[in-house]
Design a protein around this nucleic acid. Structure first.
Length: 202
DNA sequence: CTCTCGATGCGCT
DNA sequence: GCGCATCGAGAGA
């Protein structure tokens, strides 16, 4: 164990049980870890978005409690993985109290370990092309619907480790990407990024 | 560099 | 049927 935390120790449930905006902000700088066939991949989280409750028209749960979003209503610390545009997956972590639908979307990573594997999973793309987007990072880490609902506080295949944080001076907020359909909600500054980071989406 | 557009499957109307 | 919390190829500047 050192100042940046131990990658083998998952963040506990209390981390995810807080307000979604807090979790989204605090996830910046943390390490997303994926283990598959004994192989370890990891990356520093540099971009997140908060999706909060049924009044947030951009939140999948705004249309009610359906089978797809059931996991969002569940226990904090679960992964919510869904298919988008028929071909990409997006990874979220469920937040807040059971019964309240909210989650944080992981939008971009700065690859740190297992970069070769992630690059291969991305068809040989390198550097910022590996994980600078929610679909890209899932492809890089081979994250798909089989991980939907897993408890990342108690899991051997997917978890979040400490890996340090980001000072307030380096945290920027902006409107969420790709939610123009959500009316006024689309303008809320619920996207969190590490200022000036090379590995952000877009 | 920027912009446009097609891919592709599933949940919901 | 419609539309989506996306991405990358291709065209043009």
């Amino acid at each position: 164990m050192n100042a940046t935390g131990n990658k083998s120790i998952p963040l506990g449930r209390e981390f995810f049980e807080r307000e979604t905006l807090t979790v989204a902000r605090e996830l910046l700088g943390k390490t997303l870890v994926r283990r598959i066939d004994g192989l370890l991949m990891s990356g520093r989280i540099v971009e997140t978005e908060a999706y909060v409750g049924q009044d947030d028209l951009a939140c999948h749960a705004a249309r009610g409690r359906t089978a797809r979003v059931e996991v969002m209503f569940g226990e904090a610390g679960r992964a919510y993985v869904y298919l988008i545009y028929g071909m990409y997956y997006c990874l979220n972590f469920v937040t807040e109290q059971e019964g309240y639908p909210a989650a944080v979307l992981i939008r971009a990573l700065e690859p740190t370990e297992g970069i070769k594997t992630m690059s291969d999973n991305r068809g040989g793309r390198r550097g910022r092309e590996i994980a600078s987007g929610p679909g890209k990072l899932c492809q890089a880490m081979a994250i798909d619907r089989t991980l939907n609902g897993v408890d990342v506080c108690e899991n051997q295949k997917l978890w979040v480790a400490d890996g340090g944080g980001v000072p307030d001076d380096f945290v920027e907020r902006s409107p969420r990407i790709g939610v123009d359909y959500a009316g006024a909600c689309a303008m809320w500054p619920w996207r969190f990024t590490v200022a000036g980071n090379e590995f952000l989406s877009r």
